[in-house]
Protein backbone atom coordinates (compact mmCIF):
# COMPACT_ATOMS: atom_id res chain seq x y z
CA UNK A 1 0.00 0.00 0.00
CA UNK A 2 1.50 3.38 -0.94
CA UNK A 3 2.46 5.77 1.83
CA UNK A 4 0.11 8.68 2.50
CA UNK A 5 0.57 12.24 3.77
CA UNK A 6 -1.52 14.09 6.35
CA UNK A 7 -1.65 17.77 7.23
CA UNK A 8 -2.80 19.72 10.29
CA UNK A 9 -5.63 22.10 9.41
CA UNK A 10 -4.53 24.62 12.02
CA UNK A 11 -0.82 25.08 11.45
CA UNK A 12 0.09 23.20 8.28
CA UNK A 13 2.34 20.59 9.93
CA UNK A 14 2.83 17.67 7.55
CA UNK A 15 3.03 14.02 8.58
CA UNK A 16 4.46 11.75 5.90
CA UNK A 17 4.03 8.05 6.66
CA UNK A 18 7.16 7.21 4.69
CA UNK A 19 9.41 9.36 6.89
CA UNK A 20 7.46 9.25 10.14
CA UNK A 21 8.53 11.79 12.76
CA UNK A 22 11.32 10.23 14.81
CA UNK A 23 11.46 13.32 17.06
CA UNK A 24 7.90 12.49 18.06
CA UNK A 25 8.60 8.80 18.49
CA UNK A 26 7.04 7.87 15.15
CA UNK A 27 9.40 5.66 13.19
CA UNK A 28 9.64 5.87 9.38
CA UNK A 29 6.86 3.82 7.87
CA UNK A 30 4.40 4.40 10.72
CA UNK A 31 0.94 4.42 9.17
CA UNK A 32 -1.58 7.10 10.13
CA UNK A 33 -3.93 4.37 11.33
CA UNK A 34 -1.25 3.13 13.73
CA UNK A 35 -0.99 6.50 15.49
CA UNK A 36 -3.29 6.66 18.55
CA UNK A 37 -6.40 8.83 18.30
CA UNK A 38 -5.15 10.77 21.34
CA UNK A 39 -2.09 11.97 19.42
CA UNK A 40 -1.97 15.72 18.82
CA UNK A 41 -0.13 17.92 16.34
CA UNK A 42 3.40 18.46 17.68
CA UNK A 43 3.44 22.10 16.57
CA UNK A 44 0.07 23.39 17.71
CA UNK A 45 -1.76 20.69 19.68
CA UNK A 46 -4.58 20.16 17.18
CA UNK A 47 -6.35 16.80 17.50
CA UNK A 48 -5.52 13.97 15.08
CA UNK A 49 -9.11 14.10 13.81
CA UNK A 50 -8.43 17.63 12.49
CA UNK A 51 -5.86 16.45 9.93
CA UNK A 52 -6.53 16.10 6.22
CA UNK A 53 -4.96 13.64 3.81
CA UNK A 54 -3.08 15.58 1.13
CA UNK A 55 -1.00 14.91 -1.95
CA UNK A 56 2.39 16.57 -2.25
Amino acid sequence: MPFKTWQCRTCGYIYEEEYGDPGEGLAPGTRWSEIPDSWICPLCGTAKSEFDMIEL
Binding site: T10, C11, G12, G23, P42, L43, C44, G45, T46
Partner: peptide, 20 residues
Protein backbone atom coordinates in the same frame (compact mmCIF):
# COMPACT_ATOMS: atom_id res chain seq x y z
CA UNK B 1 19.02 20.22 22.17
CA UNK B 2 16.39 17.54 21.66
CA UNK B 3 13.53 17.62 22.09
CA UNK B 4 13.22 21.38 21.74
CA UNK B 5 9.51 22.07 22.13
CA UNK B 6 9.70 25.81 22.59
CA UNK B 7 6.61 28.00 22.66
CA UNK B 8 8.09 30.90 20.68
CA UNK B 9 5.54 30.48 17.87
CA UNK B 10 2.68 30.09 20.31
CA UNK B 11 0.38 27.07 20.33
CA UNK B 12 -3.18 26.20 19.44
CA UNK B 13 -5.37 28.11 17.03
CA UNK B 14 -3.21 31.24 17.13
CA UNK B 15 0.10 29.48 16.45
CA UNK B 16 2.26 31.62 14.17
CA UNK B 17 0.95 31.57 10.60
CA UNK B 18 4.42 32.24 9.19
CA UNK B 19 6.38 29.65 11.17
CA UNK B 20 7.12 27.42 8.18
Amino acid sequence: RTPNKHVAFGYGAHVCLGQH
